[in-house]
Design a protein around this nucleic acid. Structure first.
Lengths: 212, 212
DNA sequence: GCGTAGAAAAGGAAAAATTCCTAAGATTTA
DNA sequence: TAAATCTTAGGAATTTTTCCTTTTCTACGC
């Protein structure tokens, strides 16, 4: 039986190393390429044609969600497994909607990892125990709905605003013009019907995107 | 030369595995024990007397900060290195104030890891390049202290700002001039070393003044 | 009693951020 | 192919913030 070929996209060297070590006991899985950011991952996925792409959601640059979308766009059937720290329904939702076939968290037991990879490789879906439940039961308050409808960029900027970053910082972080971020901020506040960033911060906590 | 004995406290199996793999090339460092949560880590630190304790900040249960505090409480000279995803000054600050001797992020290059461990083991401090720059005195208890020192008016305005009220509204609410409130707001932000009202909102929750 | 300190309130001017409108390119969808 | 949406950002007007300063009042110590 040929090995399952993995492309691993994660900006943290430790996580990549850990991934490798955890998989050494599974002879039928092999990491054929690694990327530290989305753009590079997209490129490598075309070059190497991996069986399964494992990626993190929070990455510098275009981020995980956008990476998923772009990969799917180039290859409808790309098998993407998200491997994230986030266990909030919003994230799971967005990742699956973007085209991911599976979602597991970094909290999950090491044995979940090969299991999920095999499922995905076989064309099945795999969402970690407990996450799906959260999705269906996630109260669809107005906030939830509004936030779900955010575009990737809106969501990014929303997150950073809620965290407390100042417009200038966000622009730096996302490599955008100051005015772009300012305009998004205005738009986001309007969509959420708030007039201050403090309120926005509270909402982010309520919907489970931010912790203190 | 005897090996540097490490206790590793991190709830993510992948990270622990990665840690191990990254250190295999460094013969003088050895992981003698691992814990998946703070409580267990405290217990193991007493049992094994490691040279350096490496821990993550975000953990279920008592969390990283509290873990640091309790370990230090039992052993003043415990050498704790924080290894976190967060690169925000607030986290660095709070960790160092709690008693950590070093702070590196999971983004950092793999070579930083042994370097930091050796520094810490030798009794030095080690804070990753770039993290120290924005550090002010703003730990949990510092927030408490700062807020305690607020005058009644400052506190009022702080509360309303944290709640999400806009300057104009606060002025109305307290029957004050717009400029008065604006000036107080500036002053309050400066005292808390924050630059956005979102951060201010988070602080209010942290210190227990606000709920969601 | 009188000076000092500190809160409270707010004005003025300059700097910075926000809002609103607009628009172009890119891409997706119908 | 046309319509819709997303991303990016400029311009202008407006609003907010910042920093500095001033006035008034109260409390506290000597």
């Amino acid at each position: 039986m040929p090995k399952i070929k993995i492309l691993l996209i994660d900006d943290h060297a430790v996580v990549r190393a850990g991934f490798k070590l955890l998989l050494t006991t599974y002879a039928n899985i092999e990491i054929i390429a690694e990327a530290t950011r989305g753009e590079q991952g997209i490129q490598l996925s075309q070059q190497y044609q991996p069986d399964v792409i494992v990626l993190d959601l929070s990455m510098p640059g275009i981020g995980g969600l956008e990476t998923i979308k772009r990969i799917i766009q180039r290859d409808e059937d790309a098998k993407i497994l998200v491997f994230s720290v986030h266990d909030e329904p919003v994230y799971v939702n967005r990742a699956l909607n973007a085209g991911a076939k599976g979602y597991i968290t970094k909290n999950s037991a090491p044995t979940i990892l090969p299991e999920a990879i095999e499922f995905i490789q076989q064309g099945k879906n795999y969402v970690e125990e407990g996450l799906l439940k959260a999705i269906s039961s996630s109260s669809d308050s107005d906030y939830q709905k509004t936030i779900q409808s955010f575009s990737p960029r809106e969501f990014d900027i929303f997150r950073l605003l809620a965290k407390g970053l100042v417009t200038r910082k966000i622009a730096q972080e996302l490599c955008l013009g100051y005015k772009t971020v300012a305009n998004y901020a205005t738009q986001i506040k309007k969509k959420l019907h708030v007039s201050s960033l403090a309120e926005l911060a509270h909402i982010a906590v309520i919907v489970g995107i931010m912790k203190h």
